[in-house]
Simulated scan of single mutants.
Amino acid sequence: MKFKEFAAGVLTGAAAGLVVKGAVDRANSAVPAEQVLKTVKDAFKKEGPIDGSWIVMKTEPFTNNVISMNVYRGGVSRIKNGVLEQYEFAADAKTGTVVELVKN
């Protein structure tokens, strides 16, 4: 085997490894909490103004029947017809999808 062929094989393997590592890192990464909160606030703003909002920056485990995932917990408050409404939500940390919404 010539050195050029060996070096080409090593470089090709290293490049493939970097591509696979990048794909795995993207698949395991979480959506930033700020982005999740912005998405939720934007959805509420379609129905009217909001008063306040919050989100916990650290994820926590969540189970809904047979589905388990890490979620961000947060909340939104607004005044509707002169009455304060408060909502709490749980959003999937990987996708940002709201998986639970409870009116308090």
Rank of each mutant, 00 (worst) to 15 (best):
K2L: 12
F3P: 09
E5Y: 14
F6N: 12
A8M: 08
G9K: 08
V10G: 06
T12D: 05
A15R: 02
L18G: 15
K21I: 13
D25K: 15
A27E: 13
N28Y: 08
V31Q: 02
E34T: 14
L37H: 04
K38C: 04
K38L: 03
T39P: 05
K41S: 05
F44K: 09
K45F: 04
K45M: 13
E47L: 12
P49V: 10
I50C: 00
I50Y: 00
D51G: 14
G52N: 09
G52L: 11
S53E: 14
I55R: 01
V56A: 09
M57F: 04
T59W: 00
P61D: 09
N64V: 07
V66F: 07
I67P: 01
I67W: 12
M69S: 03
N70P: 00
N70D: 02
N70E: 12
N70H: 01
Y72H: 04
Y72A: 03
S77A: 08
S77T: 14
I79D: 01
I79A: 05
K80F: 12
N81T: 13
G82E: 13
G82H: 10
E85Q: 13
Q86W: 05
Q86N: 13
Q86A: 11
Q86L: 10
Y87Q: 07
Y87F: 15
E88A: 08
E88M: 06
A90T: 13
A90E: 00
A90Y: 03
A91I: 05
T95P: 00
G96C: 08
V98A: 03
V98I: 10
V99A: 04
V99P: 02
L101A: 03
V102A: 01
K103T: 09
K103M: 13
N104V: 11
